[in-house]
C-alpha cells in the first residue's frame, strides 16, 4: 500500500522555503557522518534487480530510465540521470542521505521505503557504473540481537534517557556515537519526538519528552527507540510508558444536536414537533367525534 508513483513530474519541496534558483546539482550539504555511511547489503546483480523494481515504482517518473537521459525536463532543477558523472561522483552515504531527506521537489523516502530497499535502489544505480567498487559497511546484522536498549523516564526534567549496550561474549559494550531516534506510535505511523541524536561515550542519549503529548485514556504511549549503529546495524525497541497526557475526549456524537440522530435531537424541537402534531390531531379527532354526534343526533330525534 505504501507504494508511491511519481508519474507526474511536478514534485514539490517540503520546506517550501528553499529558493530553487539556488539549486545546483552538486551542492547537497551532506553531513560528514552521513557521507561515510555504507550499505551492509552487497550490491550484486540480485540486489540491483530488486532495486530496479523499486526504482521503477518510485523514482523513474522523474529521473527517467538510467542511462537514457530521459528524466523529466520540465522540472526545475531537472532531475539528473542517475548514471551521469555528477551522480557517479556521489558517495553511497551521500546518495543514501539524499534518499532519506529529499529536498525541494524530491520527497523524502525515509518513512516510505525500508532501509534495505533504499540501499537496493543505490545498488541498481551503481550497476550502471563499471568503475564502482563497493565499500561494504562493517555492520553485522547478526549482531543486532545482542543489543539491549534501556529506556528510563525522568519525570522531573521530562526526559527520556536511553542506554544502548551490546551483550558481547567479551562483556558489555556500550554503543558509542550511534544514531538514535525516539518515536511514538500514532494511528497512521510513527511520530518522531525530539531530534535524531547520537549516543555518548557511555552509550547514553537523552531525549526531551514533550509534556503535552496525548496518550491513551490513562496516559499510556508506545515509544520506539531506533538505533542505527555502524557495527550492530538498525535496532528498534518498543515499550509502553504511562507518561503522556491522559486523553479521553468524549465521542463527537455524545451531545444532542440538530445533526445528531433522532434519539439525540434537541429536546425543545421534539417537544415543539410533538405538541404541534398532538394539538392538531386532537382538534381533528374532536371534529370527527362531532361528526359522529351529528350523525347520531338525527337518529335520536327520530327515536
Amino acid at each position: 500500500m505504501y507504494r508511491i508513483k511519481f508519474k507526474i513530474a511536478i514534485i514539490l519541496g517540503f520546506t517550501g522555503l528553499i529558493n530553487f534558483q539556488s539549486f545546483a546539482q552538486n551542492n547537497w550539504d551532506v553531513p560528514a557522518d552521513k557521507k561515510s555511511k555504507n550499505s551492509n547489503i552487497e550490491f550484486n546483480s540480485g540486489t540491483a534487480k530488486e532495486g530496479e523494481g523499486i526504482y521503477n515504482t518510485n523514482c523513474k517518473s522523474c529521473h527517467g530510465d538510467i542511462g537514457k537521459n530521459n528524466s523529466l525536463q520540465s522540472l526545475k532543477p531537472v532531475p539528473p540521470d542517475l548514471s551521469s558523472a555528477q551522480s557517479k561522483a556521489l558517495l553511497d552515504g551521500e546518495l543514501f542521505h539524499i534518499l532519506n531527506v529529499g529536498r525541494g521537489l524530491m520527497p523524502s523516502f525515509k518513512e516510505v521505503l525500508p532501509e534495505s530497499d533504499r540501499w537496493k535502489v543505490i545498488a541498481y544505480m551503481r550497476s550502471y557504473d563499471k568503475d564502482y567498487v563497493q565499500i561494504i559497511s562493517k555492520t553485522d546484522p547478526a549482531k543486532a540481537n545482542l543489543v539491549k536498549i534501556k529506556m528510563v523516564f525522568d519525570s522531573i526534567n521530562s526526559k527520556l534517557n536511553v542506554e544502548v549496550v551490546a551483550n558481547e561474549k567479551a562483556g558489555i559494550v556500550k554503543l558509542k556515537n550511534a544514531e538514535i531516534a525516539l518515536f511514538v506510535t500514532r494511528h497512521f505511523g510513527k511520530m518522531q519526538l525530539d531530534k535524531t541524536l547520537r549516543t555518548d561515550n557511555n552509550g547514553n542519549a537523552s531525549f526531551d519528552f514533550p509534556k503535552d503529548l496525548p496518550g491513551d485514556k490513562v496516559g499510556n504511549v508506545e515509544l520506539i527507540v531506533r538505533v542505527n549503529d555502524e557495527i550492530y546495524g538498525e535496532i528498534e525497541s518498543i515499550s509502553k510508558f504511562k507518561i503522556a497526557v491522559p486523553t479521553d475526549k468524549p465521542s463527537l456524537t455524545e451531545k444532542r444536536a440538530m445533526w445528531n440522530v433522532l434519539a439525540k435531537a434537541p429536546i425543545w424541537l421534539i417537544l415543539l414537533y410533538l405538541s404541534g402534531v398532538l394539538l392538531a390531531t386532537g382538534v381533528i379527532l374532536y371534529i370527527i367525534y362531532n361528526l359522529y354526534k351529528l350523525s347520531k343526533s338525527n337518529n335520536n330525534l327520530k327515536n
Binding site: N290, K296, S297
Partner: peptide, 23 residues
C-alpha cells in the same frame, strides 16, 4: 350523515366548521 337540519346538527356543524377554520 343523516343530516336533517335539526338545531343540534346545525350547531355541531357550525362549531366544527369554526374549529376547522381556526385550526
Amino acid at each position: 350523515l343523516n343530516w336533517n337540519g335539526t338545531l343540534e346538527q346545525e350547531k355541531l356543524l357550525k362549531q366544527s366548521t369554526r374549529m376547522l377554520a381556526i385550526l
